[in-house]
Design a protein around this nucleic acid. Structure first.
Lengths: 134, 134
DNA sequence: CAATTGCATGTTATGTCATAACATTTAGAG
DNA sequence: CTCTAAATGTTATGACATAACATGCAATTG
């Protein structure tokens, strides 16, 4: 139904770690979390992350070099997903917007650009942290 | 007129290197280009880049860890700038879109998010490279 | 079964990007 | 001149990511 194959042991472990975290994690943080499960080297994490991104189960946040579990099982319907990242508490909100997709799609079409991956990330403070900062 | 002070020697050298390159450069590539001008350490480059970004003369491309000279002297009028990055030839096109800004602004307002920096980057192949790939 | 194939994994080493910490120099303001 | 703030120089280290090669393991197929 979801369109992705069974996960391997390493992929499952990495995904579980991200789900449990409820926030972005760096690859090396994931590695440390999985030491007890036999993980020894960064590549074990990066290879699992690569597959999980292919399956659409994990997103990479380019601007902070971190990874999050996908919050929306239907996000692969969209050509692009936007993230709002709180630099204070680490909270990440994932959303998509048809209009933004359409406008960027227009630019791409007008310039005959062949997009492979689109990144939209807003960094700042979430409502809770912004209120607290007063 | 432009609203930024005179550049220091290091800042000028880094900006000149980026202007000359006509494409994104990594900090370490800039360092190598400026060895003959007395540059010895990465921090000299990163510090100059930091200031140049403040002045709006340089942009950082988050998704490829590289820097480009700003193509539009008026880009600071916009709250966000989008980049189309060719993964084949390295060409970078810089553009902005009021509608995209407005839509993301709506999300931000609705969620009481306080944005600090917004990243929009489309990676793929430019028209020339996409045509050649046929 | 044995052989082949493809993918996932394990491991070591290395490459790439970025900043901490501290000393020194430079340019203005008073 | 003296004080101050900013910029610079330098060494060391931290953080993120991948190359290269060996091994294991399951599915197919002859």
């Amino acid at each position: 139904m979801t369109g992705h194959p069974e996960l391997t042991r390493n992929q499952s472990l990495v995904l579980k770690a991200l789900d449990k975290a409820e926030g972005p994690l760096s690859a090396y943080t994931i590695l440390d979390l999985l030491r007890d499960d036999g993980f020894r080297a960064p590549l074990q994490v990066y290879r699992a992350l690569e597959k999980l991104q292919e399956f659409g189960l994990v997103h990479r946040l380019e601007s902070i070099n971190a990874f999050v579990a996908c919050a929306d099982p239907h996000c692969h319907r969209h050509s692009m997903i936007a993230f709002a990242i709180c630099e204070n508490c680490g909270r990440v909100d994932e959303f998509s917007d048809e209009t933004v997709e359409a406008r960027l799609g227009e630019w791409v079409a007008a310039n005959r650009f062949k997009p492979a991956k689109t990144t939209i990330e807003i960094r700042g403070n979430c409502a809770a942290c912004a209120a607290q900062a007063q």
